[in-house]
Design a protein around this nucleic acid. Structure first.
Lengths: 115, 115
DNA sequence: CGTTTATTCAACCGATCGGTTGAAAAGGAA
DNA sequence: TTCCTTTTCAACCGATCGGTTGAATAAACG
């Protein structure tokens, strides 16, 4: 299978799945309950939940015939870690750029002073 | 087109595109330079860069025949905002659950004390 | 000018995606 | 047991995806 970061990003690339995640932050819910609001079959929602489950974003319990779905929010950390790592790296680069520009400016000033 | 969050998540769901973003945090680079390390045609990389561009993660300049690619790190904020919003919501929910469990525990203790 | 270099456009291909319908499985309830 | 409810499995469909090859574009260089 693909790496987890890829499956997590891919899982959240779909608006229906993001909405499912959003609703699961409020409370656990069964597949049927989760499917109700959408204009699609319960099978389609079941598939979406499987994608979220494969990404590790969600787990399913078992109570009677029903499968209560539970959000596993720790996986968010994986994405946050990736995003923040490269954001920080990009910011550091811009800071270095600022230094370079400042130095350029200084030597410009020196040239000005020398002329 | 799809909403920006969807396109950004989808763009980063591909490992090659994540690697491109990672490399662009170090320095701007031309399409050819970016394509060199991968075992795929330059056209394929050009397509990947177009996906990143459509997601707003990258812009292309124009210098001679070459198109220097530049990372636009601000779009990261969009994802971070979404992730953090629901992470916080999930955490609050668990805190509420903790309160409920604590209250249950207290009444258990009261029962114990009463017996 | 014609040539070379860098990039994109267009068409194609197999695989995956998001949805459907229909059947199967598994657990209560009568 | 039989029936009903919940969920999943399987097959199918059109659309998109990630890659290819080949041609078009655009700017520098001889």
């Amino acid at each position: 299978m693909a790496d987890q970061l890829s499956t997590v990003f891919a899982a959240l690339a779909d608006p229906t799945r993001r909405d499912l995640v959003a609703r699961l932050t409020v409370a656990d819910a069964t597949v049927g309950e989760l499917a109700a609001p959408y204009d699609m079959t319960v099978q389609a929602v079941s598939k979406h939940l499987k994608v979220l489950e494969d990404a590790g974003l969600v787990t399913k319990g078992r109570r009677a015939q029903t499968r209560p779905v539970h959000l596993e929010a720790e996986v968010f950390d994986l994405m946050t870690a990736w995003i923040e790592r490269y954001r920080r790296q990009a910011e550091e680069r811009y800071q270095r750029l600022d230094v370079v520009l400042a130095e350029l400016n200084e030597s410009e000033i020196e040239k000005e002073a020398a002329s």
